[in-house]
Design a protein around this nucleic acid. Structure first.
Length: 925
RNA sequence: GCGGGGGUUGCCGAGCCCGGUCAAAGGCGCAGGGCUUAGGACCCUGUCUCACAGGAGUUCGAGCGUUCGAAUCGCUCCCCCCGCACCA
């Protein structure tokens, strides 16, 4: 008998498993599962732990079911994050250094080398491997790679050549957030402020002003028909610029922005806003209109000059009203062009007057503007003389007309401000040229992916709607970058393939990764990959034998069965990979299924490395042990639910594992037989079946409930039912052999040790999964125990109530005719008419009132019992008296007093008449 | 705003899809008892309210409704969380 030494057990497990899970093709059935690989730029926390442990539990389960299981892992190192981190560390950024030194506890000498980004990924990928090993992950590490390995780059080049050939990669221009200080596009995570800012596309409506143009930015080009004037701020100094061969008048801020948006801009001269006031401009859709002064005009928004549609824009109306109240421009009248339900001829006028707005500085103006705009957009319609279309339709049409005929161009702006880069500089919008896009907008491609999603197994099923929605919503994706680590675009090497785009079909790469490592990258030509993955061509850089082996291994594993990932990747990665699989691989190699995980919380708050709200996985392993961590992560929630890590809950998990270990130890000395053994065996078969079903459905938490807590509960009743002095029969030994295997996927270290402890050969990790034996299921015996347990509960609750020292217990068994009523009630479909049904039975009527009362009581009893139990009771021939007689000794032991079993009808005791079938009357004296 | 998911007894979290096993699993916390030199270990009991005979009453975000019967079905409302792009 050995003590439970968790450290020794874990050490031994890691050693014994070192090469155990290296999986090569065999003749049997395979199961290939994979997980979104990590980006090793920081420490692993318990949230990461769960992401890999749950798939591992399922991998281990499938392996014990006899399948050849492939569970690989690699490291994603492409992109810019580590470059940024190393730069910050090199610059002595205290925040970054603190994070790595204090939170992740990187040794100083290693930290010093972090000025090189490769050192960061090198260090952390080793750490990840080591910690994943400590977690007991059954990974085939031979297949590990990083996304900047030269062989992997050849693979990505092959993939992109195909995408390019098939027209899925196209060239275009693209607006991005851009920092002029860093001279780089910036992502949301690079921003100090404004990370929620969205890019808005404005149409510039070009008004002619003498020999120049005055562009005004609008989101509602269709309202140009209703323009009555322009607004300028007389206090602002505007500039005249030469731009793309024309001359425009705009604010200086606008000139700067336009210069980044695909225009060549030269500032010619300055023009005070006051000089523009009272001049006139013209536009084909509005005719000649004056320029008026207004204070609300923001030179940093759009072009700094605004077109005015007082009939439909509250700001325009109020500014006009302010002027007219001073007796100026009283001749100007709003021009109505949109009819919208709930408003009169001039919606903006109605809204402003209704809301009682005082002037253009009123704080309610923004909300009011929103109200009018959205009412017009959703329900508005242009008047007949302007075409009669809905606003929704007219907007795009007029915008197109403007661009084609009236010289309009597009200008981009952020919807919120300020937007500030980490470097402190203001962020602008820049049009990037010659950008390469993955054409996810292609309707045929989308359609194919929709069909794929429909054919896949998705867990949980609710995510299907989210996938379909993502497919519809995806637009073209800019798939190349100027900076960062990654593979160069094969036909345009000035670009690097972006990190999300180089990680879409690497699950195929795993199948041969360990073999490719031995082949010089230059030999991995596109022809080689064509041969391996598509089975065609005659490559010359590799010998035929190797090629055939590679092809065989690929086709053995592929397609993968399940991919696991957290749910935040649905809207990009998980959907992208489906697009790419459709584009590259034939129908029979498409993904089989996906399991989408919930998020991790720490003490109820969202886990986040950047906020320091994390619990490091290694600390958890040190403090609680690997199996405890595994069991907690598996047991706290189903995979797709959010889970919450709380230390105090974790420590109780540890005690549970020790309890299991002790039970197994004790069972080794069990011998002989006990009457209750059959019951335990029967229950065990049900636990096996339930655990198996739960794991087949990816319900790891449910599986643990059955396999651990369920069996424990059974054992508790079993021990209670043992005869005095017995520690249990040899059945406990059988139970241990099953129990260890049922828990092996979840707490493999403990189970591996226990398996050896009980004298079994080989690794439990490869032991056959238990199968429920129908022959051992004894419904009648389970039923009898059920009735007994209910009666014990009844006795206990009475004893508690009466608070007296009992001298004896008498059970009265209900007579046969009540059993007849029970069957009738149980079988009845309409319980409101059951009394009539019973009274129709021969002999019932003369029992009169008593029978009617009993029907009422039994109906209540039937409703209270589980429906399944009722069915069983109705159909079984169980002899109640025998059940209780058989348990008399047990009852006497339990309650420490003599127990009598009597027939109710043979007693005159007042309580005896209350006996019901399967619920004897109880008298305690 | 758009899309997805939720609100259950002190807390976490089952159950709701397939209405009666539900006062509602399990865990944590708390209380009492046992064991013990001691215990942050282990075991037992209790933990909505009332009740000295196995019972009754009020609960499952709020409010209506369907039904003999609703945490579970329908409608309305309130609140919370997640994703929304060039980024891992």
């Amino acid at each position: 008998m050995s003590g439970f030494d968790i450290h020794r057990i874990e050490r031994e497990g890691v050693e014994r498993w070192e090469h155990a899970f290296e999986a090569d093709p065999v003749s049997g059935e395979k199961f290939y599962l994979n997980v979104a690989y990590p980006y090793p730029s920081g420490g692993m926390h318990v949230g990461h732990g769960r992401t890999y442990i749950i798939p591992d539990v399922l991998a281990r389960f499938q392996r014990m079911k006899g399948r050849q299981v492939l569970f690989p892992m690699a490291f994603h190192v492409t992109g810019t994050p580590v470059i940024g981190i190393s730069r910050r560390i090199a610059h002595g950024d205290e925040e970054a250094i603190g994070l790595y030194r204090d939170l992740y506890r990187v040794p100083q000498d290693v930290l010093d080398r972090f000025v090189d980004p490769m050192e960061i990924v090198g260090f952390f990928s080793q750490e990840y491997m080591r910690i994943m090993g400590r977690c007991g992950l059954s990974i085939d590490w031979r297949r590990r790679f990083t996304t900047i390995d030269p062989q992997y780059s050849r693979f990505i080049e092959w993939q992109y050549s195909h995408l390019h050939e098939r027209g899925y990669v196209v060239r275009g221009a693209h607006p991005v957030k851009y920092c002029p200080q860093c001279e780089n596009p910036v992502g949301d995570h690079d921003l100090l402020e404004g990370d929620r800012a969205e890019i808005i596309r404005f149409t510039l409506v070009m008004f002619r002003f003498r020999d120049a143009l005055i562009p005004t930015a609008t989101l509602r080009p269709e309202t140009t028909y209703g323009v009555t004037n322009l607004w300028v701020d007389p206090g602002v100094t505007y500039v005249r610029i030469r731009i793309d061969g024309q001359e425009w008048i705009v604010s200086p801020e606008a000139a700067e922005k336009l210069a980044l948006q695909d225009h060549e801009v030269f500032v010619l001269e300055q023009i005070p806003g006051s000089d523009l006031v009272d001049k006139t401009v013209t536009h084909p859709l509005s005719g000649e209109v004056p320029i008026l002064p207004a204070a609300f005009v923001d030179p940093d928004m759009g072009t700094g000059i605004v077109m005015s549609v007082p009939a439909h824009a509250p700001f325009d109306y109020i500014a006009l009203r302010d002027l007219q109240r001073q007796g100026r421009y009283t001749g100007l009248r709003p021009i109505s062009l949109i009819a919208v339900e709930g408003y009169g001829e001039f919606p903006a006028v109605d809204a402003v007057e209704r809301a009682g707005i005082l002037d253009q500085n009123d704080p309610g103006m923004d909300a009011l503007t929103q109200e009018v705009y959205s009412a017009e957009f959703s329900r508005g319609r242009l008047h007949e003389r302007y075409g009669g279309k809905t606003v929704r339709e007219a907007r795009d049409e007029v915008a197109a007309l403007m661009t084609e005929q009236y010289g309009s161009v597009v200008m981009y702006e952020f919807d919120t401000r300020p937007v500030i880069c980490r470097c402190g500089s203001r962020v602008y919008l820049k049009i990037l040229h010659d950008q390469w896009f993955l054409q996810y907008s292609d309707p045929l491609w989308k359609e194919e992916v929709h069909r794929q999603v429909a054919a896949m197994s998705l867990v949980p099923t609710e995510v299907r709607a989210e996938f379909d929605r993502t497919i519809d919503w995806l637009k073209d994706w800019a798939c190349t970058r100027r900076v960062g680590l990654g593979t160069k675009l094969p036909w345009d090497p000035a670009w690097i393939i972006e990190p999300l785009s180089d990680s879409t079909i690497y699950m195929a790469y795993y199948t041969i990764a360990h073999r490719l490592r031995e082949i010089p990258a230059e030999n991995l030509t596109p022809e080689v990959f064509d041969y391996i993955f598509l089975g065609r061509g005659e490559p010359e850089t590799l010998d035929r034998e190797t090629l055939d082996e590679l092809r065989q291994e690929f086709t053995y594993w592929y397609p993968y069965d399940y991919r696991f990932s957290a749910k935040d990747l649905i809207s990009n990665h998980l959907t992208f990979q489906l697009f790419h699989h459709r584009a590259i691989f034939p129908g029979e190699l498409q993904p089989g299924g996906m399991v989408v995980f919930g998020m991790g919380l720490l003490n109820g708050a969202k886990m986040s490395s950047s906020k320091g709200n994390v619990f490091l996985l290694e600390d958890a392993l040190d403090e609680f042990g690997a199996d405890t961590v595994r069991m907690f992560l598996v047991g706290s929630a189903e995979p797709w639910q959010d889970f919450d890590w709380r230390n105090e809950l974790v420590s109780s998990t540890r005690k549970q594992i020790e309890r299991f270990w002790n039970t197994v130890q004790e069972a080794m000395s069990a011998e002989g037989g006990q009457p209750i053994d059959t019951w335990l065996k029967s229950r065990l078969q049900r636990r096996i079946a339930a655990t198996t079903a739960a794991l087949e459905g990816f319900q790891t938490r449910q599986a643990l409930q059955e396999a651990f807590f369920g069996i424990e509960a059974d054992l508790k009743w079993y021990r209670r039912r043992l005869t005095e002095g017995s520690a249990g029969g040899a059945v406990l030994w059988d139970l241990s052999r099953v129990w260890i295997r049922l828990l092996a996927p979840i707490i493999p270290f403990t189970c591996e040790a226990a398996w050896r402890e009980i004298g079994e050969e080989g690794l439990v990790s490869f032991a056959p999964w238990p199968v429920a034996d129908e022959e051992l299921i004894e419904p009648e015996i389970e039923l009898a125990e059920d009735i007994l347990a209910r009666t014990v509960e009844d006795i206990e609750s009475i004893m508690k109530l009466i608070q007296m020292e009992p001298a004896s217990i008498t059970l009265f068994i209900a007579p046969e005719w009540k059993r007849t009523i029970f069957s009738t009630v149980a079988a009845s479909s309409d319980r409101t008419k059951v009394t009539r049904e019973v009274m129709a039975i021969e002999g019932m009527r003369q029992r009169g009132r008593e029978a009617a009362d009993v029907v009422k009581q039994i109906t209540r009893l039937v409703l209270k019992f589980p429906p399944q139990l009722v069915d069983q009771l109705r159909q079984s021939a169980i002899d109640e008296r025998e059940v209780f007689e058989g348990a008399r000794e047990f009852l006497e032991k339990e309650f420490g007093v003599p127990v009598r079993i009597l027939d109710a009808e043979e007693s005159r005791h007042a309580k005896a008449s209350g006996a019901l079938p399967f619920k004897p009357a109880i008298v305690i004296e």
